[in-house]
Nucleic acid binder design. Sequence first.
DNA 1: AAATCAATACCGCTCTGCCGGGATTTTAAG
DNA 2: CTTAAAATCCCGGCAGAGCGGTATTGATTT
Lengths: 214, 214
Amino acid sequence: MKKKRIFLVDDHRMILDGLQSLLENDDHFETAGTYTSAAEAIKYIDSLKPDFIITDISMPGMNGIEFTAEVKKKYPHIKIIALTMSGDAGMIEEMTAAGISGYVLKNTGRKELKESLEKVSSGEMFYSTEAAAAMLMALRQQKKLREEEEKAHLTPREKEIIKLIAQEYSNAMIAESLFISERTVETHRKNIFRKTNTKNIVGLIKYAMEHKLI
Amino acid sequence: MKKKRIFLVDDHRMILDGLQSLLENDDHFETAGTYTSAAEAIKYIDSLKPDFIITDISMPGMNGIEFTAEVKKKYPHIKIIALTMSGDAGMIEEMTAAGISGYVLKNTGRKELKESLEKVSSGEMFYSTEAAAAMLMALRQQKKLREEEEKAHLTPREKEIIKLIAQEYSNAMIAESLFISERTVETHRKNIFRKTNTKNIVGLIKYAMEHKLI
DNA sequence: AAATCAATACCGCTCTGCCGGGATTTTAAG
DNA sequence: CTTAAAATCCCGGCAGAGCGGTATTGATTT
């Protein structure tokens, strides 16, 4: 029976070697290539014809999400499994949207790796228990922040004011730099505090950092 | 000629497998054990008698620095090489103080790994080029921050005030929670601003975050 | 055309924080 | 015991920020 061919992609060579050793002497799967960059992996798809790709997400140059989108565009039949650390979970939406079929952690063992390949083979999504839990948590947090921000509905000008506040500008300095009245700055600040449910500068700075406004 | 024995320690199994595969079929070095925790590795030192340990630094439970200090205490002859990502470079002083003899990045190849083992064998320190550069930069930054903080010389009470400021307490609230006068809080704040060379709350919050006071 | 939104500006006032000084008491170090 | 440092507290004054409101104008949407 012909073994399914797998590409392994990760910027850390040791991860590649570790993955490769997990797949050694397997009856159903074999490593068709190992690459330390997504761009390099793409070059060999036509000639080596992998059925699966197991890829890191955070990589220099083309990251795992861009890579997945690129691969799925030309080779929609190739199944892609994301190799994640719990910290990557924040990108779950982007990964799923890009077309990834499974998520395993870098700590995964041979058994779970095989299980992920088999499930993905038959068209199912696969999440390792830990990966799923971490991702769900990150997803909730991200959604909450976005809801808060939409609810706040800060206008472009208000966001600009926040940036200048974060750069330690006083009201007078903000007014001068934006060519508006200090009274206008006061009103903007008032509205900003109300919309963000903060009551002082410390709270606002925290809000802005959480919502990546600065 | 008897091969030098090496312990490999990293919380990611794939890194361990990758390292192991780099050392396979080597004439001078062999893997004596692979462990996903420092505590586990320590258990087998007496029985398996490694000459070297290659260890990650950021690990759950006992980290690489504590591990190194612990090992060096009982087995000062064992040479220890730190396996780092560039992000770990901030701990270089602690690592060196603990007794680590070499630093390689997780991207290192067989050739450089062997070179590090050989150099460390003969009593020299080893730094991979990238590891050295990253560490130097981190060291400089860390030193700068520490100088700033020593120069500032914030007293314990002042640091406490800063924490409460960061938690959005007003002067009155700080006074109430610390059972001191509001005027006292004002004086503390005045001194804090002067010592940290900041002039407003935003600047102070930034300073405090940089110096990990909050 | 009307309604809505964003941006602008203002009012009179209060509150908070800051400033530049001074002082005493308690604790820790020499 | 002496000295130094830390912590505490106060003064009078001032500047900046905030508060709760109102209003106008231009652009956009319905």
